[in-house]
Design a protein around this nucleic acid. Structure first.
Lengths: 229, 229
DNA sequence: AGATTTATTTTGACGACTCAAAATAAGTTG
DNA sequence: CAACTTATTTTGAGTCGTCAAAATAAATCT
């Protein structure tokens, strides 16, 4: 019931299953998948059954889905396209890193593997995209690291932002406007769990206060050497 | 029956009507359109009626179709995307100019106007694509020139290739392998209408013989100054 | 003009993807 | 554990773009 060549919808289903199963171990619940795809639950069920039929997904009815090896291979290829395209749009076309997601969402289904390779070369085989997300290798390896976040890291130490987890247009614009792209170095100066806020200071001396929830969306690692924002 | 945002199919129909109506004056016949889109005549009729309903096309039943102003605007935008993408693939990604058509066929529907503008800038606002076809301007102007061809130009004079009309994979590869891309300078040394062949000589001294039919697919203009191939 | 060929349109059907709403299973709570 | 809430699956229907084949109009040719 599903042909040999992947349609845009198929690629999107697989990509989102991959995305949702990186953190949560295995079994992506239907609800989460449907929400990620902006589709009603019933639609997701129908589609998932077809994808399971085509051995791209495993479907445990009433419990969730996981990728088969071939599904995973396909999903990683799409994700690689997405992230390399994003990198291209920011690095070469100088587009705003907070707008770029939507563009890549369409382009990831239109570029061939050949173009993908050349793009990768042109960009110098980057390891991560402008949001700090790792780019799957040509061979389908995706190094996932568990990072601390602004809400969980040690107070007082210099931290380098490596990843913005919430990639909604709004949040990315917020991060952009406050000078918090991946690569920026900050220090959490105060964290108040009762009030639910934390304060951080940039090397420039500027202070920013944000909620713990927001802070949890920004991954960091210990900054060994200072790097200008 | 057709929404406000153009689907891939809609864009393709309009683009091909535009392409087919540049040479032939007005009224594109259904058969030609269906063939260009690799679709059965019945399908083309159905789709054309919907596009006429949406005021993107004018449909004179049993006679043919032509673009309305808004249809033309849309078609030109798609064509601009197609040709700028082709230029990008050849000039920046260094892809083979004879392979690039197929890639652009998918990308033209995936890139936004914003990306289009940046691409145009990156490429230095080129006037024509790697095959020599003119790139419509941002404002929707498409300068069409009538060129002589290798089959019709004056024998003995230096001519610069400006355009390959037949863009099938095969013919482009042929042109490529014989060193006949747009820009190359050649001289027709002999033309034999009885035998249906012509002979041309490159500045390097190399001679090539091809059919008059093939020659009619290669547009040329008088070469004022010699340019290395 | 009448008959035949050729181009176009209709008709009925299908595949991929989607929704809304009813049915059902799983999980939770008193 | 029985009642209730929440998540998932079914069912019936719709859209978009397509095809094959029958019906019809236009063009061509004696």
């Amino acid at each position: 019931m599903i042909g040999p060549m992947a349609t845009i919808a198929v690629e999107n289903y697989l990509k989102h299953v991959l995305l949702l199963s990186t953190r949560e171990p295995e079994l992506v619940p239907m609800g989460a998948l449907a929400a990620a795809l902006a589709v009603t639950p019933g639609t997701a069920t129908t589609m998932v059954k077809a994808l399971a039929e085509a051995s791209l997904l495993r479907h445990l009815p009433h419990h969730g889905v996981s990728l088969t090896p071939s599904g995973r291979r396909l999903a990683l290829n799409v994700l690689r396209k997405h992230r390399l395209v994003e990198t291209f749009l920011v690095n070469i076309l100088k587009m705003d890193w907070s707008t770029v997601h939507r563009e890549a969402e369409r382009l990831e289904h239109a570029i061939s593997d050949e173009v993908l390779d050349r793009l990768d070369e042109l960009l110098g085989h980057p390891q991560s995209d402008p949001h700090g997300d790792p780019i799957p290798s040509r061979e389908g390896e995706l190094r996932i690291q568990i990072y601390a976040t602004l809400s969980s890291c040690v107070v007082g130490t210099s931290q380098r932002i490596v990843q913005i987890t919430d990639q909604s247009e709004n949040f990315l614009r917020f991060a952009d406007q406050h000078g918090l792209p991946p690569g920026a170095v900050v220090r959490v100066t105060k964290r108040d769990h009762a009030a639910g806020v934390l304060t951080l200071r940039k090397p420039t001396g500027r202070s920013i206060t944000l909620s713990l929830n927001a802070g949890a969306q920004i991954s960091v690692e210990l900054a060994m050497s200072q790097v200008a924002s």
